[in-house]
Design a protein around this nucleic acid. Structure first.
Lengths: 199, 199
DNA sequence: CCATCTATGTAGTCAATGGCAACATTTTGC
DNA sequence: GCAAAATGTTGCCATTGACTACATAGATGG
């Protein structure tokens, strides 16, 4: 009797499912994601995924949460690599956000899609806040340095964050009407910052 | 023999399907939309909808297009009812956009979801441009009146539009962290306008 | 006025899917 | 060691979108 070619237990099914799911998501969209297809690709039975994800939505929620974690990481990296001025960091943040969004369009739609399961919703929202907190930090620093006027930092950051997100969404939907994304981002960043500086 | 209770031809199936689809969409989300269920509700056979919509995606595309048309109408109404100053109109536009978005969350996601069929995509994008054109008009008027500085009006309008959309998305996703939507919209509108005035 | 062509609707079928239940095999922890 | 929990499998079912063949109504034009 040869050794079992496939051990009864996969060993890292959850991880593999999430990974394949993410690549399929970007390739075929959220509608192209099938638990059974993922199971086939992972070489397990069609019901195996249910041991790791209560249902399809739970998988999507997990993807969304992971997406926010990675977005936060990407934003942090961009900020660290930028010139150490609030203004430059702010622009870097905007660029990184839009860049991430365009590289993970479907994932982003999932992250902001307000159809998470009751329990998962809070986890996803919380993960999203982590991304936002980074923006708050930069705004606070800019205020401390006197680069921009006073005002509720979290409110300001929220609006900035929303602006980045809006541009990313429009860009992803091909509604930029031919305008280069970078230029739009720059326009937004410049205008907004001017408005803040004068507050 | 009594008269046919149900005439063989429905008479306005397409219209009814779209209407029911829209209400179901907001109630159960896009995943809760089933062609067969719609057919049942309309009292026709399960294959009848296919005579009006090539496939499920075609129905979603039609909904998205109709959504942009109605969004445009809502924005136009808001602008007309606002005080006849560019500043007030701009704020009214922002408010109306977010208001529409919150009242039609699922529809909005559909409108900006970049998974329209090849043929329908252009129609949807075109419908979206109509909404944006309104913003361009207001920006142009403001520039003519000297309220804000010069600059590519369509670029500026694009950024403004994106900002409104971003706030709406965050609000719909419950990521406003308790901040009242109106206040966030006001902050955005004020800051952005200040930035423009100083350009 | 009627023949026919087209639009619209019906019935039947198929494969894929998500979800559930019953059962099997490891792994863990006491 | 052994019981219990985790993890995986098989079988099943209802629903769904899509397709084909067919039925009926309405429009068009000779």
């Amino acid at each position: 009797m040869p050794v079992a070619e496939q051990p009864y237990h996969h060993g890292s099914l959850r991880r593999v499912l999430l990974a394949r799911a993410e690549s399929t998501l970007e390739k075929d969209g959220v509608d192209g994601l099938s638990l059974r297809q993922l199971a086939r690709e992972a070489g397990v039975s069609h019901a195996a995924p249910s041991k790791h994800f209560r249902d399809r939505q739970a998988l999507l929620d997990a993807l969304a949460e992971s997406g926010f974690l990675r977005l936060t990481a990407a934003l942090e990296r961009a900020v660290e690599e930028a010139e150490p001025h609030a203004r430059a960091r702010f622009a870097a943040l905007a660029g990184a956000y839009v860049s991430f969004a365009l590289a993970h369009r479907e994932l982003l739609a999932l992250m902001y899609g307000n159809k998470h399961a009751p329990g998962a919703a809070s986890r996803v929202v919380e993960a999203g806040h982590a991304s936002m907190d980074l923006t708050v930090r930069i705004v606070t620093e800019a205020q401390a340095a006197g680069d921009i006027g006073p005002g509720d930092a979290s409110r300001i950051a929220l609006v900035a964050f929303a602006t980045f997100h809006g541009i990313a969404t429009l860009a992803a939907g091909g509604m930029l009407d031919g305008a280069p994304v970078d230029e739009v981002v720059t326009t937004a960043s410049d205008t907004f910052w001017r408005g803040l500086a004068q507050a």
